[in-house]
Amino acid sequence: MGHEINGLHHVGHIVHDMDQAIERYRRLGFTVAAPAYPVLPTAPGGPAEPFGVANAHVYFPRGFVELVAVIDDTGRVPGGARPIPLRVPDDKAPGLRAAIRATAAGITSFLERFQGVHIMIADTPDIDRVAARLTADGVGHGGVHDIQRPVETGTGTRMEPARYLEISGPGSSPGRAPEGRIGFAENPPVEAPHEQADHPNGSTGLVECVLCVADTALPDLARRYEAYFGPARPGRVTRFDRANVTVVAASALAGLLPGERPAALPAFVAYAVSVRDLSATEALLRGNDVPVTRTGPAESFVPADAALGAAIIFRQDGHVRVG
C-alpha cells in the first residue's frame, strides 16, 4: 500500500444547531473558525440565496474537525456566518443546485440517525493511485472529484483546489456506507494562518477516529476496512494505523470509553485529538463545567452527552495507545 495514506484528513460532526455547536466547541477549548454557507441565485439574474449546508472548522496543522448543519427552508444561517458565492454559468447552475440539495438531503438522513460524527475522510498525497487501487480490488467508489474549497488567509477568503473520493458501502451509492460517509481527500499545500490555530485546550492534531460495530459485524467490517486502508493491527480492538481508525465491537466499547453507548450501530462514536499538556486540558474543561473522565495516564475523554453526540478523546502529545 506504500505511502498512499497519511492519516486523517478530517472528521465531520453533523449537528442540529450550528450556533449551539460553535458555543459548545469553544467551551471545550477549541478555536472555531467563522461558519460559512453557499449562496447561489435560484434563477438566472435573481438574488443569491443561502441553501444547502453551513459548516465551520476546527483546524490543526494537519487535518480538521468539520461542524456541519443543514440550512432549513427559512434560509436561516448561523450567527456571524460568511456567505460563499458560487459563481457558475447559468446553464450549469441547475446541476450545481441539484448536487448541493442532494448533499443536504444526505446530511439530513445522517442527522435523522443521530447527532454526531458521520464523516471520516483519510488524507492521501496521491488520490489517483488510491482510486486505481480501490478499483483493482473491487471496491466501489464514486471516482475522483475536483472541487474548490474556501480557505481563510491573512488577506481574506480564497478558493483553493481540492480533490476527493467517496467510497460506496455494500449495496450503497457513492458517499454512503452503513456507518456514514467515508473516503479520501488530497489537498495541495496551502499557507493559511488559520490552519495553525492556537487552541485554548492545547490540542495539536486530529489523531484518531473510533467506529463501533455490532460484535457479529466486526469480522466483515474489518475485512472491508483492510481493503480501504491496509492491514489492521490486532488487539483488544482493531486498529488501522495508517488511517488512524480504530474499530471496536459494541461489547468492548465500555472498556475503551467507560459509560459510552452507541446511538446506533455501526457508528462513529468518538474522535481523538493530541494535546500539549493533558493535566492543563483537564483543568480547562473542568473550569468550563465540562465533564471529563481519565482513562489512563495519558488519556481522558469528554462523554458524547456533553459533546453533541460524539465523545472527544484528549491524548497526551506523543503517546501511542497500545492493546
Rank of each mutant, 00 (worst) to 15 (best):
P178N: 01
P193N: 11
E23I: 11
A104Y: 04
R97G: 03
F268P: 01
D305I: 09
F51G: 10
A104G: 08
E195N: 14
P170I: 01
V65Y: 12
G169I: 02
I312V: 14
R158L: 12
H118G: 00
S168G: 06
P234W: 07
H199F: 06
L256C: 02
S203R: 07
A81E: 03
E282W: 09
E49K: 14
V273S: 03
E299M: 13
L67M: 07
F240C: 04
I107C: 11
P78W: 04
T108D: 14
V68S: 07
G235Y: 06
I71H: 01
V207S: 15
P89Y: 12
H145E: 03
G156E: 01
G45A: 06
G80T: 08
A222M: 07
E23L: 11
E160S: 11
G140S: 09
D128N: 14
R149Q: 06
G12H: 03
A227W: 05
L211M: 13
L134N: 08
P258Y: 06
V290I: 11
R276P: 12
A280D: 05
R286G: 03
R261A: 13
R149I: 12
M18Y: 00
P303F: 02
G142F: 02
A105E: 14
H10E: 00
T124C: 01
V58T: 13
M1E: 12
E186D: 11
F229Y: 15
P94Q: 07
T293Y: 11
L218T: 12
M1W: 09
F110P: 04
V117Q: 08
D305G: 13
H3E: 10
Q316A: 09
F30Q: 09
T204R: 14
R76D: 13
P200Q: 01
L256N: 02
A306Q: 02
G205N: 08
T108N: 14
P50K: 06
G52A: 09
V190H: 07
L134R: 08
A232F: 14
D305K: 11
R236K: 14
V290S: 04
N201M: 07
D126K: 01
D289E: 09
A132D: 15
A131V: 09
A217T: 00
G309M: 02
A310E: 08
L206R: 06
R158K: 12
F184P: 10
E208P: 05
E208C: 07
G143L: 03
R26H: 10
P44G: 02
F268E: 03
D220P: 00
A310H: 09
H10D: 02
L253I: 06
D215Y: 11
L221E: 14
I182K: 05
G140Y: 14
D220T: 12
G45V: 04
D305P: 01
S203I: 05
L40A: 12
V248R: 02
L253D: 01
P234K: 13
A192G: 01
F51P: 05
A99P: 04
P231S: 11
I119H: 13
E66Q: 12
H145P: 00
